[in-house]
């Protein structure tokens, strides 16, 4: 059986923790688990007796519920620990919290935190598995995995393969549009989509691209109309309006005119691209109100896919013995 065993790293802190084979294994496992989610009884005994802690220092009901559902469908015990705003003000450090959770017998900690690298730090302090559910402006690996899963399902299916199982994303052109600089979703997606063979174009005003982006395996395009012409999928990032105050762009109106997605922009596309958004949408800002409705369906599908992908990650990291 050892030939079947997977050799994934202990934690999922960054997409860099995954090989191409690991990434495909997660997607294929998610594909299999998605069928379970369709079954009448949505519960598997796989992680019975395991304790999973959702440690969330930032509000993110979406991500937390998704992980919670995934863990519960695998019969893990779930402890929700919402630490928003409490850690620093009450003097308990992340390290203290980590040690507390460990003594409570947590087998895995799913961490959402406002500081880049927080998951890396946590992994240095705890014996359990650490899964990064978004750290500052660094990464959000499970979001990228579910994006890749959705893209594959839509764009790599064929007559004999309804979900694209086993396929990577080679040959696909994918544009990521918006505030790349501050986006953990973008960072994880660039790494993962590249790992899976897609061609990536980043579309953003130069102020919202990090210095050093020239080292990334991507093309940069400042003209959304040009980028959308030939692309298979467009990933719209959520824009935080407070960015305006720091002179990243002049006004919401100008931003949405140059980098928003609306019906006219879609006319430039030669093929009808799949449109993704991590949600929730700022209607009228990064996506026009009328296009948003069209996108909503994929967003809802993303929610379901998110549970499957997170079940796969939990199963692969917690479902067996780690030496």
């Amino acid at each position: 059986m050892s030939d079947n065993a997977t050799a994934m790293k202990k934690h999922l802190l960054s997409i860099n923790d995954l090989t191409r084979e690991d990434a495909l294994l997660i997607l294929d496992t998610a594909d299999e688990l998605a069928r379970v989610s369709d079954a009448p009884i949505k519960k598997l005994p796989t992680l019975r007796g395991r304790t999973v802690v959702n440690l969330f220092y930032e509000d993110s009901t979406r991500t937390r519920i998704s992980f919670e559902a995934a863990a519960k469908r695998l019969s893990a015990d779930v402890i929700n620990f919402s630490a928003k705003g409490s850690s620093v003000s009450k003097g308990e450090s992340l390290k203290d919290t980590a040690l507390t959770l460990q003594s409570m017998g947590a087998d895995a900690v799913i961490l959402r935190h406002g500081a880049s690298g927080a998951a890396h730090r946590l992994a240095q302090w705890t014996n359990g598995v650490v899964i990064n559910a978004g750290d500052g402006t660094h990464e959000h690996p499970t979001q990228a995995l579910l994006d890749a899963f959705t893209i594959r399902k839509h764009l790599k299916r064929s007559s004999g393969n309804a979900t694209g199982v086993g396929e990577d994303l080679s040959g696909l052109r994918i544009s990521i549009v918006g505030d790349i600089l501050h986006s953990r979703v973008a960072r994880s997606n660039v790494l993962l989509l590249h790992l899976l063979g897609a061609k990536i174009t980043l579309v953003a005003p130069p102020t919202l691209l990090p210095v050093g982006v020239e080292e990334w395996p991507v093309e940069i395009c400042y003209d959304f109309n040009e980028a959308i012409e030939d692309c298979d999928a467009v990933m719209m990032l959520r824009l935080q309006l407070e960015r305006m105050k720091s002179a990243f762009f002049p006004s919401a109106r100008e931003y949405s005119r140059l980098f928003g997605l609306d019906r006219e922009r879609l006319l430039h596309a030669r093929k009808k691209p799949l449109i993704l958004h991590p949600g929730p949408i700022n209607r009228g800002l990064e996506i026009s109100a009328e296009s948003a409705d069209a996108v909503e369906s994929v967003i809802l599908e993303q929610v379901a896919n998110g549970v499957s992908v997170r079940m796969a990650v939990l199963y692969l990291l917690l479902g067996g013995a780690h030496e």
């Binding site: 059986m1 050799a7 796989t46 199963y315 990291l317 013995a321």
Partner: peptide, 9 residues
């Protein structure tokens, strides 16, 4: 399951 590394499905 816990006696071995995780297996692919």
């Amino acid at each position: 399951l816990r006696s071995r590394p995780p297996r692919p499905l």
